[in-house]
Structure formats: structure tokens, C-alpha cells
Design a protein around this nucleic acid. Sequence first.
DNA 1: ACTATTATTGATCATACGATCAACAAGAGG
DNA 2: CCTCTTGTTGATCGTATGATCAATAATAGT
Lengths: 226, 226
Amino acid sequence: MSRAQPRPSARKSPTERAVEITDAARVLALEHGLTAVTLRSVAARVGVTPALVAHYEPSMDALLAATFTTIVSAEIDEVERLIGDAPTPTARLAALIDTLLDGTRDDVTVVWVEAWALGRRNEVLAASVRAQMDAWQAVVQGIVEAGVAGGEFQATDAAAVAWQVLGMIDGLNALALVRWGDAAARGSLIGAAVEGMLGLARGALAAARAAEPAAGRVVEASDRGR
Amino acid sequence: MSRAQPRPSARKSPTERAVEITDAARVLALEHGLTAVTLRSVAARVGVTPALVAHYEPSMDALLAATFTTIVSAEIDEVERLIGDAPTPTARLAALIDTLLDGTRDDVTVVWVEAWALGRRNEVLAASVRAQMDAWQAVVQGIVEAGVAGGEFQATDAAAVAWQVLGMIDGLNALALVRWGDAAARGSLIGAAVEGMLGLARGALAAARAAEPAAGRVVEASDRGR
DNA sequence: ACTATTATTGATCATACGATCAACAAGAGG
DNA sequence: CCTCTTGTTGATCGTATGATCAATAATAGT
């Protein structure tokens, strides 16, 4: 029989080990924030020595940036999948706002807020933040442009509208992070605000939201810490 | 004649020294963010030993919280003074949005963002953040309630509107902090958004803004680092 | 002028961080 | 079965953080 003591970690293939490390970093970031992703904490989670993590990652700054990118791009993909079914741009926008403000993604919001702060002293991370912001903006801008093309929305600068919508969402989420008591009321008024920006009739977004069953976030077990 | 070497710092009265320390902390936070406010950096700026700073402040967590409160409450006072002249709630709201989004307060925005992040590991700071958020919310809510009372605004929940407006402003500022290229376009669309939330006519806020000369931020020399 | 108070220092501790490198050992190839 | 490659470790360095405490020196009070 094999000994009961956990062996000092079996030797694994580089790719397998690399995945373990980036996975551990991702889970740690989602559980305790980007600040909790340190050489030692990642090593402890994987069950190896800090030196091995340093061996696999060029620097912790880079690992932080990669972790941030992984988390946020996964969020983007997930949200795009969620709102893909909605028939009209109005419905897609309503669904996007709905799911981003329902409070189920507070872990990602923490990552965003910390990335904003850490990005001031981590240039690699700052670049990743800008890239992911652009990616988000492209998604929203696409919806807005489709709405304008179809005559649903009135907007002269779709890009600017996209930035504003994102800023509003991020701000409300960050705010709810500290003042979580008011989290329930997050999505109520932003609809009216967006309607104002897009020349929509009062309640148009809420109506589109009511039509859709407002699918919740799919949480896979592997995404969560044990 | 006195020796040319800077003497190891003259002995001062406790209150005077306390002011020096909190001032140094404030300037450091505005110049390089809350993370730059350390026992040693504050001591170096004042020209004393780290031990003396520790002697005057109960803990660095507390000093951080106090510094944050000082900076933000000063911002609130200043903005309240700036918008005080505006005749109507609509004009006051327009002036508030205008001055908060004109990009002259990015140093304070950095403090906000860092406070959100640090507050997750500094309970004293987190409490200060909540308190200052409440203070800001009270200001905005006051304007909204006045507007509703006077028939200018249509809103059933002034408190909720205030939170949303603040969230939007914070989000746009935080976003502009990273993507500063788009800073110029910050204030353009939010007017329409707020009009949507308050049942205002299209362009009502912009019209009120045009009437006021949009006073800039007053920067005193003592507020800045040397 | 003497003394008591106290503002201030220097030294030091404990912790946590990222990073490096020689040495070890597990597996692959012959 | 032996050897070479390489995944992995242990030890260690350098830096930065907050915090404590006995000792010192400057001031205030008498």
C-alpha cells in the first residue's frame, strides 16, 4: 500500500503543472481577490514549493495579469452566451444589464476593483485591464450599433454610449460591493437611465426584460474553490 | 551661526506634530495613492523617525482611514460650495455632475478606488468608506428631493436615484482613470441618462449647465505636494 | 539653576513579499 | 540496467511592511 502521508508532490508534465498553477491563481483571485495571489499562496494551493511557481511564471506581475485576463474574458464569454438568445438589441441590452447587476458576479467585481488599484503599480496588469475593457466595450457597442441600425435606438456615438453603460454598471457594482445592503435595488433605475441615453420610451427596457425569463448565472463546480 | 546640516528635527508640540503627520499622509495619498501612505514614507516626508509616526497614530490602518475621510469630506465640502450658487435643483444637479466629471479630481478618484480595494482588508477604512459614501448620498438625495418637491423631477425613491447617480459618476471616473483618453467625453451622455431617471425633458440638464459658467476647481497651493 | 516631564530617537523584532540557484530525484531513452 | 534530461526542492537573499521599547535630549515648571 502507498504511504498515508501526502507525498512531496508527484512529478508532472510541464503543461499539466502550468495548468494547475494558473487554475490555482484563478481560484484564489475569485475567492480572496487578486491581492491574495502570491507566490506562496499559489504554491500552497497547488501543493508545491514557491520556487516551482516562480519557475513556471515569468513574474508575479505577469501571473496576476494573466489571471485577470482569464477571469474577465470568461465572464465576457459567459455573458455573451447568456444574452445571445434575446431576439432584439433592446432585449439583449436589457439582459446584459440584468445579469451584470444581479449580484451573482461580485467575485469578478472584486477582481475588477483590485485590478484598477493594482494596475497603477503593475504595468502588465494595467495593459490587461485596458484590453479587457476594450473587449467589454466592443460587446456593448455591437448591441448599440445593431439597435441604431434597426431603428430601435437613437444614438450618434455608439462607442461613447457603450463606455457610459459600462461605467455605470461598474460603478454600481463597485458601490454595491461596499454597501451590499442596497444591492437588491441595483437594477431598478439604470433601465430608465439607459432609456434616456438611447431615446427609448419609458419602460422599454423593463418590458423587454419581462419577456425574457432572465436566466441566472451558471456556476460550474470547477469554477469554485472547494 | 547655526550649522548648515539640517538638525535632526526640532522638538514640537504634540498638536503641531500631529497636524504635520496627518498632512503628510494626506499629501502622499493625493500624490501617489493610499498605498503610498506607509509608516516610513510619512516619517520621511515629515522628517522624523518612523517610530514617531507610530507614536502619534494608533495604527496605520487608522491613519489610512482618517486620511481617506479627510480627503473625501474636503471634496464633499468643496463641491457643495461650488454648486451652492445654482438657483434650481436641476442646475445644482447639472453643476454637480459637471464638476465631478471634469477630470480635475482624478487624484481623489484614485483614493476612492484604492479605498474600495484596501477596505476589504482594513475594517477601519471600510467603515470610513461607508460613512463617506453615505455623506455623498445625502448630498445628492437632498438635491433630488428638492427637485421632486418643486415639481422639477419625477422620482418615487430619491434615495435610490442618489445611489444610482453616484454609482454612475464613480464608475465613469474609475473608467477614465485607466482609459484616460476618453476622459473628455465623460460628461456628455450622463446628462441624458440622468434625465431619463428623473423624467426630465431631453437636454434639460445641458440647458441648466449652459446657464451656469461651470466654475472650475479651486486648487490651493497648500493642497498640493511641493 | 535644577528637576521632572515628555517629545524623539535608534535599535530591533516579526512578518511577508518576489526572486535566484545549486542540488536532488524522478522519469525517459538507449 | 544505466545514463541523461529535467521537474522539483531547500536554502537563502534582499526588500518592505507595521510595531515595540529602552534610552536620549529638549523643554517646561518650579
